[in-house]
Amino acid sequence: MNIDESKSAIRTRFLPPKGYVWEREERGSFSEYLVSFPLYPPSFPIRDFQQVPIEKQSHHVAVLKIDVDHKDLQQCADAWIRLYSEYLWSQKRFGEIGFHFTSGQFLSWNDFRDGIRTIETGRSVRFVSRGSFDDSYANFRKYLRLVFQYAGTISLDKEGVPVKNNSDIKPGDFVIVPGSPGHCVIVVARVRNPAGKYLYLLAESFMPAQDIHILRNPTNSSISPWYELDVNSAETVTAKYIFRPTSIKRFYGIK
C-alpha cells in the first residue's frame, strides 16, 4: 500500500503509485487546503459523534484531524459542507459561506451571524430575526449544525455543477447520489502520470455521524487507496457504497 505512516498530512502520507506524481494545486485554493489536510496517527479508529469507535474499521486508511461534533448531524454531504466552510473560514471569506436547505431555502453565515434563526411550522421552515450579532467561531459551529440539520445530499446535488471531463476532476469535487438517504464521497487528492491520467483519494463520513476518513479501494488493491474515476462510468464502487450512476460534481461557487 502506498502509505508513509511517519507523515501527518494527506500529501505527505500517501505516496503516488508507480508512474504517478503529485500535481501542485493552486495556492490558496480549496484543492490545496484538502491535499494539505492533517491526519490523525496511523491506526486511529473511526469514531462516531459520541466518540465511540464504530464497529467496522476495515474500510479506511486514515482519519482526517477534524472533530465530528457531539450530535448525529455531520454525515456524508455534511462532511463536505464542513470542510468547505472551514476552508472559507480559514481564508476569512465569510461572505461566501452559505447553503441551501433541502426545502430550497438559503441561509448564509452572515445572516445567522446577524441573528437570523429558523422556526419549524409543520413541515416547513421559516426565518425569523431573534438573535444578536455574534461573529465568533463557536457561533459559526452553531450555524453549521443548523445547516447539517436541514441540508443533505438532495440540496448539495442541486448546488453542484456536473464535472463533464475526467481531466477536470480535482480535489474538492464530490461523487454524489441524492436521496433520503443518498450518499456522497469527497475527492481529497489527485496524482497524475505522464499520459495525463489521474488517480484520486476519496473521503467520507457516514451514518451515524462519524470521523471523516479516507477510503480503501476494494476493487484494485494494486493502487489502493487510490481510485480511478470516470464521469461516464455506469457505476463507481467505493469501500462502503456503490454509486449508480457516477455523478461527479463541483459546488457552484468553486471555479
Rank of each mutant, 00 (worst) to 15 (best):
S85W: 06
Y87M: 14
S90D: 14
R93K: 15
R93G: 06
F94L: 15
I97Q: 05
I97K: 04
H100D: 09
T102G: 11
T102R: 10
S103W: 11
F106L: 13
F106V: 05
L107R: 02
S108T: 12
N110Q: 14
N110A: 10
F112R: 00
F112P: 03
F112A: 02
R113C: 09
G115L: 07
I116T: 13
T118M: 14
E120C: 09
S124P: 08
S124R: 15
V125W: 12
R126M: 12
G131C: 07
F133L: 11
F133K: 13
D134H: 08
D134Q: 11
D134F: 08
D134S: 12
D135L: 09
Y137P: 00
A138Q: 12
N139Y: 07
Y143F: 11
R145P: 06
L146V: 09
V147H: 02
V147Q: 00
Q149N: 11
Y150E: 02
Y150I: 00
A151K: 02
A151I: 01
G152M: 00
S155G: 06
S155C: 04
L156V: 03
E159S: 08
P162H: 06
N166G: 13
D168W: 08
P171H: 04
F174A: 03
V175S: 02
I176G: 02
V177K: 02
